[in-house]
Design a protein around this nucleic acid. Structure first.
Lengths: 338, 338
DNA sequence: GCGAAATGCACAAACGTTTGTGCTTTGTTT
DNA sequence: AAACAAAGCACAAACGTTTGTGCATTTCGC
């Protein structure tokens, strides 16, 4: 019904003050520009009564600041990323920012498109879980003066800030745990090989295996997907000598693996032990509750937000790079063998 | 590095054409305003070379159209809603809209705050899963001329369009299925009582029970949460006469229920059968794969988008209200008893 | 070749804010 | 009472687009 949404001009007319004054009161600059108490009161009252809603577009056109931050993740359907999104969304709201969440669908081209769209909307900062090994377009954003923070996946040796898990240690710990339980034929099902986290996780795995004097070459797969986990496990089970344990490098891979194991009627952990990267509430209720390396999702998100905001405010361009310690959650998916 | 992001003015200078012409070419109005082929070419070339990125703020200030739609859901952490969000996000991108996803955290006040924020950003439409039984603020948005579509949860007898599942039928079917398998002592664990879907689901349950001549009063709980499912199941198990089957009205409730059953070492389905509303990939891999009433999430999302877009384009204010048929997915959580 | 129609483009206003600057009024100091 | 500082406010430009209108120039029918 409201034909024309009301502007500060309307408030100016209603109060008999100037547009300037109204703007200054409403944007909290009253003190700075010495607007009298009474005028302030009048303005606020009128704004209330007229249901004034500021037009961000006009304000942002003028100031260049959009009050909008962007979050790009590979997939909202992945509970791990959904968790991050939720956390970051609520965290940023506390600081009066609105977050535009984009789903790159694990596709670098989509990621680039999104990024273009987002810059057109003058985002003031970006938190991104890059979905490929390309970083030029991300770096470009940063070079345009827009603060960027990578989370989960990141690029080593680049001056883009990141906060992630100590993937090497997580994988090393998981592998050690399997070894300590008597396993020596362990297969690792990995994700995208070019991604840093995957590389580090694989390193953790192979180092632990080598240290123990075991074959560290049993690495299969090439994608952080359900399908990959499923297929690779299927293949694995057709070998003459099966592994005694599988280490999957993500929750999606793990679920595919579980599906394959179930289809082949392999009992976990009696026939094959299983441990995975990433935690999820559901893991507790699977037919065999799955042991895992849990990433500190909440901390990662909060620190990423902190980095981003401090960069936005201080224009502090020092590169901050942090790795948080993962924790191991033991459930019932690992059997001790002699 | 790029000191000052380049505008159509820069392109105008580069090409020797006027700002007007550049604008018209770039916004696809070249034909309409009879801009010559050559000029068009020059403009596009320059835009390319200068890496022109349009400033939405300016454009939107002028046109009033923001290219932004909003989606409000109760929780990104709920895979059911995350799925909807993902679907809608990608669907809307196809139409060159950007979606702002907001998480109301199952809190009406937050929902209202979000909505206010969003109107300030001139959203052109809203898809919402309302988290309470309050509708005034939503209705207000619609009255402002902004198309609104409710999904999943909605308000009966109101002229706000919605697309959801036929909750009554889903619940009725689930209950019938239990009854046909010999169950008569069935407890239903419900969610928020004031919500329409919950009410209809309960109706479906009680109608099926009454029809069969069974006690239809065994309804517990009051929240769509894990905790509620957990607690109510715990209480349930302390009764002298336990139900032979449980019907949970959401995936979150189901998981809480599963946790409680597991703690009390109740075997599903041997001791108690279980069926739930909402599907999820994980359900297949639980210790007992859970039978469920699956909602057509993808269809719901797509139809909602369709409604919204048609309303935006045609300013068609006819109220569209649709209920889609749910499907029953049988897994291994229901035991046939004599 | 003449008038009319079609083609190709530019002027300038407008969208709703923010903000540097400057004008008036009031208060304070001597 | 003169001089000056502080308080309180308004003017007007600017942000980067879009768009109604109008002025040239070309094309065409005859």
């Amino acid at each position: 019904m409201t034909k024309h949404s009301i502007s500060i001009k309307d408030i100016a007319e209603a109060t008999g003050l100037s547009i300037t004054t109204v703007s200054r009161v409403l944007s909290g600059k009253a003190k700075q520009y010495r607007i009298g108490k009474q005028s302030q009161e009048k303005v606020r009252e009128a704004a209330q009564k007229l249901h004034y809603v500021p037009n961000h577009f006009a304000a942002n056109l003028r100031t260049g600041r959009s009050g909008t931050l962007a979050l790009i993740i590979p997939s909202l359907n992945n509970p791990f990323f959904a968790g991050i999104a939720s956390e970051i969304n609520t965290e940023l709201r506390k600081f009066n920012y609105i977050t535009i969440i984009s789903d790159s669908d694990e596709n670098v081209e989509t990621e680039k498109m999104e990024l273009l769209q987002l810059t057109a909307r003058n985002i003031e900062g970006l938190i991104i879980v890059p979905c490929g090994d390309q970083w030029q377009h991300i770096r470009e954003i940063q070079d345009q003066g827009i603060p960027v923070v990578c989370i989960d996946r990141y690029f080593e040796d680049l001056d883009i800030p990141y906060v992630s898990t100590d993937n090497y240690e997580g994988a090393y710990k998981a592998t050690r745990h399997l070894i300590e339980n008597g396993h020596s034929r362990i297969t690792c099902i990995q994700g995208v090989q070019t991604s840093t986290p995957n590389r580090l996780r694989v390193n953790g795995f192979t180092d632990a295996m080598k240290e123990a004097g075991f074959d560290s070459e049993n690495i299969a797969g090439d994608d952080f997907t359900f399908q990959n986990g499923y297929l690779e496990t299927k293949l694995l089970l057709q070998q003459k000598v099966r592994p005694t344990a599988i280490f999957t490098l993500s929750n999606t891979i793990a679920m595919g693996c579980v599906k394959a194991l179930k289809e082949e009627q392999i009992n976990v952990p009696n026939e094959i032990s299983l441990i995975t990267f990433d935690d999820h509430p559901y893991l507790d209720y699977l037919s065999t509750p799955l042991s895992c390396i849990a990433q500190p999702v909440s901390d990662i998100s909060k620190i990423a937000v902190k980095f981003l905001l401090s960069k936005i405010q201080n224009k502090d361009i020092s590169t901050s790079q942090v790795l948080l310690k993962p924790s191991m959650k033991l459930r019932d998916s690992i059997r001790k063998i002699n």
